[in-house]
Computed example of a mutant assay.
Amino acid sequence: MIKGTITSINISKEKGVVKTPVDTAICKCDHGIVGDAHAGNWHRQISLLAQESIDIMTEMGVEGLTPGQFAENLTTKDICLYELPVGTRLQIGETIQEVTQIGKECHKGCAIQQKVGKCIMPTQGIFTKVIKEGTIHIGDTISVL
């Protein structure tokens, strides 16, 4: 069984800003993370990015990267997110989430892309929608169902 861990939960009150880490989050069906500006009744309710992907950017010379700077809601470790097919269901804390999209286009060219010419979110970030509501915490296990 493929498993990973949540290392950071990140939210923002408005779009277009770096997300701030929180200890726990409530996830609602047809919404996503309560209190996050990107939540809503659509297919990209929650975004995930692996710490291993962030480490690639650090190795490319981007300094001072912290969770939430790629606008990801969940920073993870020990699970290769971008290799999970669309439709994969994940048990994350009390929730069940379904992978709905791999990567995304950076429309304006994020600050990271402008600095080093590349951003990892378009190829290695993923998006999910909430299938079963619940609370998630830093340290929760992510299991592929």
Rank of each mutant, 00 (worst) to 15 (best):
L49C: 05
F127N: 00
W42R: 08
V18S: 03
G4R: 01
A111E: 07
S47P: 01
P85N: 12
S143C: 08
T88K: 00
T5F: 14
C119L: 05
G93M: 02
T141H: 05
G87D: 14
G68M: 08
I11Q: 11
V34K: 05
G40P: 09
S143P: 02
T88P: 00
A50P: 01
L90F: 09
V130C: 13
T7A: 06
K3R: 13
K104R: 14
T128Q: 02
T24K: 02
L81P: 00
G117C: 02
L48I: 07
K115H: 08
E94G: 08
E52R: 00
N10A: 05
N10Y: 03
V62G: 00
G32D: 04
D36E: 12
T5P: 10
K13W: 08
L145N: 00
D36H: 13
G87K: 09
D30Q: 15
E83P: 10
H107V: 13
H31K: 05
T141K: 03
I56D: 03
L65D: 00
G61Q: 09
I54D: 01
M1C: 12
I26A: 07
H137D: 10
T5Y: 14
G125P: 04
A50L: 02
G40V: 13
K28S: 01
G103W: 02
G109N: 12
I96H: 02
S8H: 03
V116H: 03
C110L: 13
P122E: 11
H31D: 13
T128S: 06
M57E: 04
T95D: 01
I96R: 04
I138S: 03
T135I: 15
C119K: 01
L145C: 08
G93T: 07
P85M: 13
M57V: 05
P21Y: 12
S53N: 13
S12H: 12
L84E: 11
V130S: 07
K13T: 14
C29N: 12
K129A: 05
I102Y: 11
L81Y: 06
E63C: 14
P67Y: 07
G4P: 11
T66A: 10
T88N: 05
N73W: 02
I11D: 15
S8I: 10
D55L: 02
C27V: 02
I138V: 15
N41L: 10
Q91V: 14
M121K: 10
A39W: 04
A71K: 09
I26Y: 07
P122F: 12
Q124R: 12
M60S: 07
I33F: 12
G125C: 05
L84A: 11
K108R: 14
D140R: 09
G87E: 14
I142L: 07
Q97I: 12
K129F: 03
D23Q: 15
H38C: 06
G35Q: 07
N41E: 11
N73S: 05
D55I: 02
G103P: 03
D30E: 15
E105R: 15
I126L: 13
T7E: 14
H43L: 06
I33P: 04
V62I: 13
G134E: 08
I120C: 03
P85T: 11
T88A: 08
A37T: 07
Q45K: 08
E105H: 15
A71C: 09
G125M: 02
L49V: 04
I126T: 08
E14C: 11
G40Y: 09
T141I: 10
A50Y: 01
W42Q: 08
A37S: 06
T20K: 15
